[in-house]
Measured scan of single mutants.
Amino acid sequence: HNLTITQGKLFFHYNPKLCLSEIHKMEEVSGTKGRQERNDIALKTNGDQASCENELLKFSYIRTSFDKILLRWEPYWPPDFRDLLGFMLFYKEAPYQNVTEFDGQDACGSNSWTVVDIDPPLRSNDPKSQNHPGWLMRGLKPWTQYAIFVKTLVTFSDERRTYGAKSDIIYVQTDATNPSVPLDPISVSNSSSQIILKWKPPSDPNGNITHYLVFWERQAEDSELFELDYCLKGLKLPSRTWSPPFESEDSQKHNQSEYEDSAGECCSCPKTDSQILKELEESSFRKTFEDYLHNVVFVPRKTSSGTGAEDPRPSRKRRSLGDVGNVTVAVPTVAAFPNTSSTSVPTSPEEHRPFEKVVNKESLVISGLRHFTGYRIELQACNQDTPEERCSVAAYVSARTMPEAKADDIVGPVTHEIFENNVVHLMWQEPKEPNGLIVLYEVSYRRYGDEELHLCVSRKHFALERGCRLRGLSPGNYSVRIRATSLAGNGSWTEPTYFYVTDYLDVPSNIA
């Protein structure tokens, strides 16, 4: 807008934040220059609390790290170098490059900038070799853009010569660093050979998330399962459950009422301010606690030095998902009996873990797994792929695949051998790939016309006998059925096997 004052003059007093240069501009645009008398524009009460600059400061050096910015700028000295009290560095987070010096300023003089007072450097006698002032900004957020400017702080001049310097606002972004852990990993099994893994992005990506790394490792069953005799009275049979499938998407929606109208769909109840505040506090606490764990609990591995020492970490090797089922080394339970199943799973520490690289999504279907087997899954978020990966501390989750139908069934015939004193040795093959492992066998036998009897055969007993022995049988026709019990439950009964026990007292003698 054009402003013209045809008559009258300007009068400025007691404006401590208004620089004289701005008042002189007002004289020019209003056409009143030359009308004012000496005392109409006070030299001592206008701009006496402001830094009124008329020179431009330029930054000469900028260096960044993930949490620091090192700045240096060209030296500046007023005509009387004693008038320079120091520099004021202003900075704040700036997602967009549209910041002005006066953003967030209120009537009390406060604003949204963080201000650092910096002492002037030592003055050199040689004007050509003056030290460049600077400042190291610490405690910054990774991968965050900051708006920065600097200006001088000078003393009051009796001659009211307006001098000083100020830089333009520059924008500097800190470097990326390792992201925080992925949030809320959930693993479920939808079949006997697959596990579905879902997660949420890290709360602090500290860069642009480029991919996720998912490692999985087959877990050995508890050692007590191999040692305890679950045929003993009072000892509860062990059981394991597989990871249940995901709930429906509708039930997972946030901010939804727990109660549904019987007449149909209901609208979600909005969260109160107290609920939102509580969630923010919980989120802040979780982030602080995660940072504490990362800094205190997890110790970084030592990389190899120039002395030739090897990095103890196993090298990563990509495998196809079809090879995942046989990740671990199978060892027989008892070496003397080769027909026992290889369900003991000690994992070799030198073995390469299978892994998958996930790009542009937060889910993965891990296939080719062994049925009813526990897996430990390790999830890392990465925001750099080359020249070397920059990934987060791992988040861990466990899951067990679903049982395989008929995996616990005894394959092959049940054979028998009759000894003296009416002892019958029953023999059968253990299931080759049971659900988890076989903890015991149930032997059901009966003599024709009598009630059915049951015998429990422990895992250890089966390994020693290759089956079991029935003792003290009365003469007669017998039928026997056997079924295995694994961590997933009972298998199917075998087809009945028949044998006849004679009275050993009636056996004919070869003595003449």
Rank of each mutant, 00 (worst) to 15 (best):
L453D: 06
I366Q: 01
G207H: 03
A381M: 04
P244R: 09
K406L: 09
E430F: 07
H254V: 09
S392N: 02
H461A: 08
R390Y: 05
D250K: 10
E249C: 09
N477E: 05
D291Q: 12
N339P: 11
E388F: 05
A407I: 02
P403V: 09
C231W: 03
R218G: 13
M402W: 11
E362F: 09
T497N: 06
W242Q: 12
R459F: 07
Y292E: 06
R376V: 08
G264Y: 06
S283N: 12
R240N: 11
W216S: 03
K236M: 12
L464S: 10
V443I: 10
R459P: 06
L321F: 13
F419C: 15
I482R: 01
N295G: 10
Y500R: 06
F289E: 07
A395D: 10
Q219Y: 15
V329G: 14
E495R: 11
A399G: 11
Y500M: 05
Y375M: 05
T494S: 14
P434A: 05
V296P: 10
V397S: 10
S284G: 12
E362A: 09
T333N: 06
R390M: 04
S251E: 10
F226G: 04
E281N: 04
R313Y: 09
L228E: 15
S305A: 10
N490K: 04
A381E: 03
H371S: 13
S486W: 00
S342F: 09
L369S: 01
R301C: 12
S248T: 07
E404P: 02
G412D: 13
F226P: 10
D250N: 15
E227N: 10
K361M: 07
T340I: 12
I418P: 08
K287F: 12
A394K: 13
R353F: 03
D291F: 08
V414N: 01
R353V: 08
V480I: 13
I209R: 13
P475V: 08
Q384R: 05
N255D: 10
Y441H: 02
K233Y: 12
G491S: 07
D408R: 00
L213R: 11
G306Y: 07
A381G: 04
K302T: 11
F226V: 08
E465A: 10
A463M: 11
S398E: 04
E217V: 04
G449Q: 11
D204P: 03
V423D: 15
L464K: 10
Y212I: 11
S398A: 11
P338W: 10
R481C: 04
S283A: 11
Y504L: 14
I438A: 04
G308P: 15
K278W: 08
Y448P: 13
R483T: 01
L455A: 12
E217S: 07
N383H: 12
E221W: 14
I366W: 01
Y212F: 15
S305V: 10
P403D: 08
K287D: 11
S284I: 01
Y292K: 08
D506P: 14
L487W: 07
E388I: 15
T303R: 09
E260N: 15
V331Q: 11
G467S: 01
A335N: 13
A395E: 07
E224H: 13
R301I: 14
E260R: 13
K287R: 08
V299Y: 13
Y396W: 10
R447C: 05
R400V: 09
G234E: 10
H211Q: 09
K253S: 11
Q256P: 13
Q275F: 09
G308T: 09
V439T: 11
H425Q: 08
F462K: 08
L280N: 14
Q380V: 06
F298E: 08
S203Y: 06
Y292V: 09
A220E: 15
P338H: 07
A484M: 08
P354N: 07
S274I: 02
L280V: 14
G412S: 13
F246G: 09
E247D: 08
N360T: 12
K271T: 09
V443Y: 01
Q252E: 12
I366G: 00
P245W: 11
S479W: 06
D409K: 08
L277P: 03
Q252D: 15
V439F: 09
E356P: 06
L225I: 10
H352S: 06
C468S: 03
D506E: 06
P431L: 03
V329M: 11
I482S: 00
P332W: 10
E258A: 12
V296C: 15
N421L: 09
A484H: 00
T494K: 02
I418T: 12
P244E: 10
P300F: 14
Q275D: 06
G264A: 15
H371D: 00
G489W: 03
V329D: 15
T347P: 09
K236R: 09
C468F: 08
S305W: 12
S367H: 05
H416M: 13
S284H: 14
F499K: 01
V345W: 11
G489Y: 11
P508R: 15
S257L: 12
E350T: 08
E420K: 10
V439C: 05
I482L: 08
T333G: 14
G368K: 04
K361F: 12
A399I: 10
V393G: 03
K357L: 09
V296F: 05
V359I: 11
M427C: 02
S268F: 04
C266M: 06
E247R: 12
S283H: 10
P205A: 08
R390W: 08
H294R: 05
T307W: 11
V480M: 07
T494M: 02
L364V: 12
L440R: 07
H371M: 01
T386A: 12
E389S: 10
P346V: 14
K302M: 12
D409R: 09
E279L: 15
E388Y: 13
H454P: 04
G308A: 11
A263K: 03
R313T: 10
K406Y: 04
V501I: 08
L228I: 11
Y500S: 10
A407C: 01
V327E: 11
E420L: 04
N208G: 12
R286Y: 07
H254T: 09
P475Y: 07
E433S: 13
H352T: 05
S348N: 14
D503W: 14
D506F: 11
L487I: 08
L369Q: 03
T340P: 12
T401S: 04
E351A: 03
V345A: 06
G489V: 10
Q256F: 12
R286H: 06
N435L: 00
C456G: 01
S342E: 09
E442R: 09
K317Y: 08
E362P: 04
T497H: 08
R240H: 06
C468W: 09
D409S: 09
D273L: 09
S315R: 08
F298V: 05
L228D: 12
L440N: 10
Y396R: 08
V334M: 10
Q384T: 10
Q252I: 10
K432N: 05
I276F: 08
N435A: 02
E417G: 07
V414A: 03
K317N: 07
D385K: 13
E282T: 08
G306D: 11
S262Y: 08
H416P: 10
E389I: 08
I418K: 07
T307D: 15
E465Y: 11
R469Y: 09
T272V: 09
R481W: 07
D506A: 10
T288N: 14
Y292C: 02
N383G: 02
E388N: 13
S509Y: 09
W216K: 11
Y498T: 07
E404N: 10
S203R: 08
K361D: 04
R316Y: 02
V397H: 15
E279I: 05
E351M: 13
L232H: 11
T401A: 02
G476E: 01
L235C: 09
Y259Q: 11
L437W: 03
K357F: 14
D408Y: 01
Y396V: 05
S509M: 08
H416R: 05
T485F: 06
C269T: 08
S304I: 13
H352Q: 13
W216P: 05
E258S: 11
E389A: 07
G308M: 14
D385R: 11
V359N: 10
E221G: 15
L379S: 01
L487D: 07
E290I: 13
E442T: 13
L473D: 00
L235A: 11
V480C: 15
S486D: 01
G472R: 06
T333Q: 15
N422Y: 08
E442Q: 06
I377N: 01
V297Y: 11
Y396T: 11
H211R: 06
R313V: 13
I276E: 11
S320F: 12
